[in-house]
Design a protein around this nucleic acid. Structure first.
Lengths: 123, 123
DNA sequence: GTCGTTGCAAAGCGTTTGCAGCCTA
DNA sequence: TAGGCTGCAAACGCTTTGCAACGAC
């Protein structure tokens, strides 16, 4: 990742402005508002490059292809709205994980996903 | 799902005997010990049929294709071993989820995955 | 014998890669 | 102007589907 191309700039801007994790396809649509010729392969290549540079982080939710969000937000989890399919960040962590870890198992990390309706869809 | 074929019997047996969630490929390999001619398409078709019948449940972990386990075990979560890649069931639940649910959001359910080393791999 | 089920091969779908041309530095 | 980057199209891996043959009931 050495050059600052129009495509890369559009992708970074879309990720920053969205404020929530984006799928490659969502990202393509958003970034195409700046660079109409943008191809999906370029999106995937830049996602990988940005992730290797630590600029973004993959958000992997069960049963879904990865979404991506700007990195450096500290430990958090996600809320997946069943109605609009959007993913939100949530702060906090239920903790108390060692009590559910089986005997002899070494716990290294955890993931945690909430499902339901976001405030907009619940209304 | 009306007929009790050799293939379906082999698939059910493999799922029951494994005791932990299996991927379609793992299942194919196990069930082929009974029915050598078994094809992957048949595995996928039977997984769907067994799931629709409520006989099995999909176990979706972040970033992984679905695994399948025998249904009816009640609420539980999973531990994914980073070394052997196997998935174990864990009992219990950290609870206390409403405290991390944002204002105005309606919580319907949750998923929860532990990562680390299983007892065999930790030794 | 019927028709649900199977195995194969082809089709889908999301993601990755090869390659020639483009454009940033 | 060099070579990193892009867009296109082909390749890939996993899952689904079409179809003729098979076999459970």
């Amino acid at each position: 990742m050495q050059r600052d191309t129009r495509q890369r700039r559009a992708i970074r801007t879309a990720l920053k402005e969205a404020g929530h994790p984006l799928s490659p396809k969502e990202l393509l649509e958003l970034a195409r508002q700046d660079v109409t010729s943008l191809g999906i392969a370029t999106v995937y290549r830049n996602l990988r490059a940005l992730e290797e540079d630590g600029w973004i982080e993959a958000v992997e939710l069960p049963g879904d292809p990865p979404r991506y969000e700007v990195a450096g937000k500290g430990h958090h989890h996600h809320f997946h709205c069943r109605k609009c399919d959007r993913v939100y960040e949530v702060e906090g962590c239920p903790g108390n994980l060692s009590s559910v870890t089986p005997e002899g198992f070494e716990l290294e990390s955890h993931e945690f996903v909430l499902y339901g309706r976001c405030d907009a869809c619940a209304a």
